[in-house]
């Protein structure tokens, strides 16, 4: 008994994250229902998006509601390059990412000098401009009629017949993004961002390059969001401004990070795995009979979380529930450090 608890204390923390990874890796072998695989695939995508948003929104403390612009730029760039020049979406996603970074640079010039609601409003306006332009310049984007991406299955075209392929690719993408976020959080940039988030003046007076840090976070965030946009386009095979550029996409990213927990890399994972399946499920169950009820519930949940658990569900969960579990295993020390970290 004593031995096993020792092993848990020693290696438990490092091994615990591997458990869900292994489970998720094996899942398609157990679940053949395509609909559930679809929900998981979407969840991976949204976790990645929430995490990407978290880099600037959480770590940097800059509440952007304009990330749909980057998402849409990524989706449109790779799709257009593929449709017109046959360029593989694997390369197209980098083109989209770079274009999104340029867009991020443009909006950062005014936006990052602003704080609080002003920053938020300028990102909203920016995303709206991108959406309206995509809608209007129909020679390029086909406007709201949307782009249909030709379906030629194959690895190079990032197009597959089986759901499982998407499942694994998006799973890998999500892991990559999560690792990125973990590294950022524990890097110099992460510490700078945390300092800026807490008190920008104080950070600057200590020599933290606040604008540079925020800009870096913004660019990284935009890049990842755009790559996710490519995956989304290649998954749906159809994009239009209404699907990839509306404010709802931006809000969803914020929701996932905020409900899960801001400014910690685990937050969006938690948030994504709750919000996405919950949304799909509520719509499937309530959509026909009580139209709109699922969003009512969403609204209430969001308000309750923000009011009563403002730090987000993940920190709260580890504090309230995790404490008990860990205490049972006699890992009191771990609990303390966890709390300190939060």
């Amino acid at each position: 008994m004593r031995n096993s608890s020792n092993i848990l204390t020693k290696h438990g923390n490092k091994l615990i994250p591997l458990v869900p990874v292994v489970i998720l890796l094996l899942l398609p072998l157990l679940i053949h229902n395509q609909y559930y695989l679809h929900i998981f695939t979407l969840t991976f995508l949204w976790v990645a998006l929430g995490s990407a948003w978290n880099i600037i929104g959480g770590f940097g403390g800059q509440l952007s509601i304009g990330h749909a612009a980057f998402f849409g730029i990524g989706a449109y760039t790779s799709s257009l390059l593929y449709i017109h020049f046959g360029l593989s979406p694997w390369l197209g996603m980098f083109a989209g990412g770079i274009l999104a970074m340029i867009a991020a640079l443009i909006i950062s010039w005014p936006a990052l000098r602003l704080r609080g609601p002003f920053f938020t409003l300028s990102t909203i306006a920016f995303a709206e401009v991108v959406r309206l332009l995509a809608n209007h310049y129909r020679e390029l984007t086909k406007g709201s009629i949307g782009l249909s991406i030709p379906f030629n299955p194959g690895f190079v075209n990032l197009a597959f017949r089986s759901r499982e392929s998407y499942y694994y690719f998006l799973f890998a993408f999500m892991l990559l993004v999560i690792i990125c976020c973990y590294l950022i959080q524990n890097s110099k940039l992460g510490y700078y961002l945390a300092a800026v988030r807490e008190d920008e003046e104080a950070a600057e007076s200590l020599g933290v390059p606040s604008t540079f840090s925020k800009l870096m976070a913004m660019l990284l965030s935009a890049f990842i969001t755009a790559v996710a946009g490519t995956f989304y386009a290649q998954y749906l095979f159809y994009i239009d401004p209404h699907t990839v550029l509306p404010i709802d996409v931006s809000i969803q990213m914020v929701l996932i990070a905020a409900i899960g927990g801001l400014a910690i890399w685990q937050g969006p994972i938690f948030g994504g795995f709750i919000v996405t399946p919950l949304g799909e499920f509520l719509r499937a169950q309530l959509g026909g009979a009580f139209r709109g009820l699922h969003f009512v519930i969403f609204g209430v949940v969001l308000m309750l979380v923000v009011i009563f658990i403002p730090e987000g569900l993940y920190p709260w969960f580890t504090r309230i529930i995790g404490k008990r579990i860990l205490v049972k295993f006699g890992a009191k020390n771990e609990v303390k450090t966890e709390e300190g970290g939060v």
Binding site: Q34, H38, L236, E280, R283, A284
Partner: peptide, 10 residues
């Protein structure tokens, strides 16, 4: 997309 998935596979 999601609902078409569901109706078909579930």
């Amino acid at each position: 997309t999601a609902e078409a998935e569901r109706l078909i596979s579930k």
